[in-house]
């Protein structure tokens, strides 16, 4: 079994329901996110549109975080999920530095690394990840990539524009996007205005603690 995720960006409307469901399900502390929806505005007024991209751990086949972890706190489980053992983590932040997708954070409460686990605890009880359940338009498609009849495999077969983030990194992500442009997937394809955001002026997150 190889579990994977696919997001159909044609369907996503940026409601952030998945983001909130993830926060609640996994008790993700304030100022940190396992899953987030990035908004990128494209075009010049009046010809503008807003794009939405849910971003989470890619559960790579060749995961740099798993490779650099000095104590195997980050490890693969049988269904292909890259899981984390918070009791073993020493908080060296090697995984944070190694992940090309910025998907790993240091939990300010436990001072250990954390990230999306595809809700491994729910899957173990035969439930879908919280973000999949919460999505009102079924833009999140989750399933077994090794089963050709699964929803995700069928979706990949039927769509020609299936992409992953940063394929040049050689990480072989198990997280796919349909209907994505460079502005969705490539951080260098959009500008970040300093000190300005839709809802606040915070662009950089101080780490606190002993740093």
């Amino acid at each position: 079994m190889q579990l994977g995720f696919l997001v159909d960006l044609h369907l996503c409307m940026g409601c952030k329901g998945c983001e909130i469901a993830c926060k609640v399900e996994n008790e993700v502390p304030l100022s940190t996110w396992r899953l987030r929806v990035k908004y990128v505005d494209v075009g010049t007024y009046p010809e503008t549109k807003r794009t939405f991209t849910p971003l989470r751990c890619n559960h790579c086949e060749n995961a740099p975080c798993e490779r650099i972890c000095p104590v195997s706190a980050l490890h693969y489980i049988d269904n292909g999920i890259v899981n984390i053992d918070k009791e073993r983590c020493i908080g060296c932040a090697g995984c944070v530095m190694a992940c090309p997708y910025g998907a790993i954070y240091i939990d300010p409460e436990t001072q250990t690394a954390d990230k999306c686990t595809y809700c491994a605890h729910r899957i173990a009880s035969s439930m879908m990840p919280a973000c999949v359940v919460a999505c009102p338009v079924e833009a999140n498609i989750f399933g077994d990539l090794e089963d050709p009849t699964s929803n995700i495999s069928t979706y990949i077969q039927q769509h020609t524009d299936v992409q992953v983030r940063k394929p040049e990194k050689g990480t072989n992500p198990h997280h796919y996007y349909v209907g994505a442009s460079q502005a969705h997937l490539n951080p260098l394809a959009s500008r970040r205005e300093e000190g300005y955001n839709l809802f606040n002026k915070i662009t950089t997150l101080p780490l606190g603690g002993h740093h």
């Binding site: 929806v37 908004y39 394809a189 500008r191 662009t203 997150l205 780490l207 740093h211």
Partner: peptide, 14 residues
């Protein structure tokens, strides 16, 4: 003219 209009804050230097 793509501009990020909503995202989480970028983590500081680790």
């Amino acid at each position: 003219n793509a501009v990020v209009t909503l995202d989480v804050a970028i983590p500081d230097i680790f």
